[in-house]
């Protein structure tokens, strides 16, 4: 009983698809800043064809589920760090800025942790390790060539300032409570009246 004609007429097919897989888009990692002056914290990943589209997607996806004022984003491949899936390189280039992100324990969120200057990611990681307090106890350290980090513009609106209570649990708390109170109170009165002294009316 679909409600639209297009849905009602979607053909039911059982044969294999007649075109080949196209493969995946580029994976980008997104960090959000919840309030001015606070550290950027990892929000999650987004798949997009390029960084321009990635920013648009990330603003819509990670910028709308929690209040946030700014957003960083870089290709997952740009991460170099302490773990096997993010190898560092010692291929020398110009001295440039690397942004550091650290994760305290496995399972924790990666958080922005300063920056270093280096000519390759191996050097950047070594410097990050000396710069970070407790580096030995951190579960993981990422260094990302700042050139690959895109961000939203300063003052750019991400979290919309229209009334968004319709998409937050707290937007319903009061209405739900009032309705429960009315329903439960009505039931109590109904039960009381059911045993009322009807014969005397």
């Amino acid at each position: 009983m679909p409600l639209s004609k297009i849905r009602a007429n979607a053909p039911e097919k059982s044969e294999d698809l007649d075109f080949k897989p196209t493969g995946d888009l580029v994976a980008f990692v997104t960090f959000t800043q919840r309030k001015e002056g606070t550290k950027y914290v990892i929000a999650g990943s987004i798949d997009a064809p390029d960084k321009t589209m990635a920013i648009i997607y990330a603003k819509e996806h990670y910028g709308q589920d929690q209040e946030c004022v700014s957003l960083w984003l870089f290709p997952k491949k740009a991460i170099a760090g302490t773990h096997a899936d993010h190898p560092t390189s010692n291929e020398e280039g110009p001295v440039r800025g690397f942004t550091i992100f650290s994760q305290k324990q496995s399972g924790d969120l990666h958080i922005e942790a300063g920056s270093v200057e280096a000519c390759h990611s191996e050097e950047a990681l070594a410097k990050a390790k000396t710069q970070l307090e407790n580096a030995a106890n951190l579960h993981s350290i990422w260094v990302v060539d700042a050139e690959y980090i895109s961000s939203t513009e300063e003052g750019e609106m991400i979290w919309r300032n229209t009334d968004q209570t319709y998409r937050l649990a707290r937007g319903y708390s009061k209405a739900v409570r009032t309705k429960w109170e009315a329903i439960r109170a009505a039931r109590e009165v109904d039960e009381y009246q059911a045993e009322d002294l009807k014969e005397s009316f």
């Binding site: 399972g107 649990a169 319903y172 708390s173 739900v176 309705k179």
Partner: peptide
Amino acid sequence: GPYVRTMRRINMEEAFHYKSGEDMVLTLMS
């Protein structure tokens, strides 16, 4: 870890889905 982090994020949003559902049921039943 990666699944756990995703669940935490998802659950924040599920709270709204559930609460708005409760509100809809309450509205219909009153």
